[in-house]
Design a protein around this nucleic acid. Structure first.
Lengths: 198, 198
DNA sequence: GTCTATACCCCGATAGAC
DNA sequence: GTCTATCGGGGTATAGAC
């Protein structure tokens, strides 16, 4: 928000066309650089050069490097949750956890840059605020799939945390070994989860 | 290795007393600072101040910040693998995976600074060389526990990667929520693994 | 062998000119 | 809206004091 909501009649997206274009351009450049060189390796000068402007110009559109990276992170997260949410909703509640696992691993498999971007942003962004944002959605999906034993809430939370970590590890492994079969790993994780909740 | 193995009769530790003391001191300071402020937040000046010497003096004992952090990382990893290896060996092969999970989570639960240190070092240290170093030991323990189906090697590898990621997530969750019951999560992970390999 | 002083360059951020 | 100039601070290399 280089300009805050000024005096307009429109609440939705009070941004110039060029402003929106610049932001998208800068976010794309940030995703690429952070994915390839890490948070520290992605300098404002490098991002600026990648976008054809100067370092100071970048800081006109985003108040700090942290804000820019956060925007890039949210951009990437939006695409991920949209795909996963769609996959989970298009399936019966009992198959929710499996759909979650398969779609998330598949999405990150096809977007390695997004994977690295998410990892870098998470480890550099002040404790991510609320950690529940990560496991709560999956915990709800698990609870919906197995309403019988929903009594013990802690179980779904623990299972969600375990699955989330397992997904992290699978896509991270693929980053270092491009030949790693993430789909097979996803199926194995699905089997583990289904066998443990039956 | 401030001095490499020069022409001596002794292979073991060719280091001065002060050298060894300084290294320990610097490694301790590094673990604390990296755990509390992250890799980027832990400056050489800060580490030096924490040890009562100057920035340049630190770079006499370690050739770069990356080397210093790597040494601190290895120090912490040594303590971890020693405890886990001991726990696994003191148990029958069939209970190896469970012992691995319980001892690793318990160790990291009791050393939160080590946990943060490991995470920071792993995400900042050039792809950690060989990723197999992380899952291979556990994969061997799993294969030893279930020799029947050891035919398909990929299974043990995938299971090891899944378990490793799950452990990461459990101890990471505890970093952000000090009240999180890691022991209960460990037991749930053990149950998941045992149910899936039977 | 241990350490200080100094200087260099890159980074993120700010101020002000155009 | 974008630039140049500048500042503080970080990691690193070197020279040399003790």
């Amino acid at each position: 928000m280089a300009r805050d909501a000024s005096r307009g009649v429109r609440p939705p997206t009070e941004l110039t066309l060029t402003e929106r274009a610049r932001r998208s351009q800068l976010i794309a450049a940030t995703i690429d650089l952070v994915a390839e060189r890490g948070y520290a390796g992605a300098s404002l000068a490098g991002i600026a050069q990648n976008a054809g402007i100067t370092k100071a110009a970048v800081l006109y559109h985003f108040p700090s490097k942290a804000h820019l990276v956060r925007a890039a992170y949210e951009h990437v997260i939006d695409a991920l949750v949209q795909e996963v949410a769609g996959a989970v909703e298009s399936v019966e509640v009992g198959d929710g956890p499996a759909a979650y696992i398969r779609s998330m691993i598949s999405h990150l498999h096809e977007h390695p840059h997004h994977t690295r971007m998410i990892i870098e942003a998470m480890t550099h962004d002040e404790g991510d605020g609320d950690s529940a944002e990560r496991w709560r959605p999956l915990a709800d999906i698990i609870a919906a799939a197995h309403p019988v034993r929903a009594a013990d809430e802690g179980n779904a939370k623990n299972t969600a945390i375990i699955i989330g970590g397992a997904i992290n590890a699978i896509v991270a492994e693929r980053l270092q070994d491009p030949d790693y079969d993430t789909a097979a790993a996803a199926e194995q994780l699905v089997r583990m989860v289904e066998r443990s909740t039956r």
